[in-house]
């Protein structure tokens, strides 16, 4: 008698459970009321089920954000795991929305869920994409601006993964500076 065994389908677990957040700008409401938790996942397959289902960033309305953060960390400066941290910031020109925005954001997500920064991945809190008429932004947030070794490793690896040319410089800014200054007043704490 032939015996048919059915292999149970096992999903690939991620190192971390992640939460996707969506922000839709409604100026009549306070900032926090516009922020929605979409869902949580902790396997590769569930990540793709989500990603394949939601709108591409390039098709979101201006003023919207996606954020992907480790479970338990809220996508805001005030969260305890973020308040001493900062972000590696990628600023895109309007022309780049068509060509590179979705590609860069997907690469950012794959870096996060795949733990692309080796042992320094513990320092990562999450990633954010801001879709804005004046120019889109993508960032990876880390938890401690003082951990120079980790911040630099994450920045170098991230730049490589995005395939950015050596001559393009990306900057790391402390949330404490972003929260209190604006635009040109924000100094880069590190660059790679």
């Amino acid at each position: 008698k032939e015996h048919l065994t059915i292999q149970p389908y096992v999903k690939h677990p991620l190192q971390n459970r992640w939460t996707l957040w969506f922000f839709k700008n409604d100026k009549s409401k306070p900032w926090q009321a516009n922020l929605r938790l979409v869902t949580k996942f902790d396997t590769v397959e569930d990540f793709w089920a989500l990603y394949n289902h939601i709108q591409l960033a390039s098709r979101l309305m201006s003023g919207c954000d996606y954020s992907l953060f480790k479970d338990g960390i809220e996508p805001m400066w005030e969260d305890n795991r973020n308040k001493c941290g900062g972000r590696w910031l990628i600023t895109l020109s309007k022309q780049q929305r068509m060509l590179e925005l979705d590609q860069f954001w997907l690469e950012t997500l794959l870096c996060l869920i795949g733990e692309a920064f080796d042992d320094y991945s513990n320092e990562v809190c999450g990633g954010v994409i801001n879709v804005r008429a004046k120019g889109d932004k993508i960032a990876i947030w880390t938890r401690d601006t003082e951990n120079q070794e980790a911040v630099l490793h994450i920045g170098k690896t991230y730049k490589e993964r995005l395939g950015l040319p050596v001559k393009i410089v990306i900057g790391y800014q402390a949330h404490a500076d972003t929260a209190t200054k604006s635009g040109l007043g924000i100094k880069n704490k590190f660059v790679v």
Binding site: Y9, H12, P13, L14, Q15, V44, E45, W48, N52, E107, L110, I113, G114, E115, A116, D118, D119, S121, R161
Partner: peptide, 18 residues
């Protein structure tokens, strides 16, 4: 402890698996 790391190639291959 050990960390579960997935490279880009592996993650992309999983995109359309069942």
């Amino acid at each position: 402890g050990t960390r579960i790391i997935y490279d880009r190639k592996f993650l992309m291959e999983c995109r359309h698996s069942p």
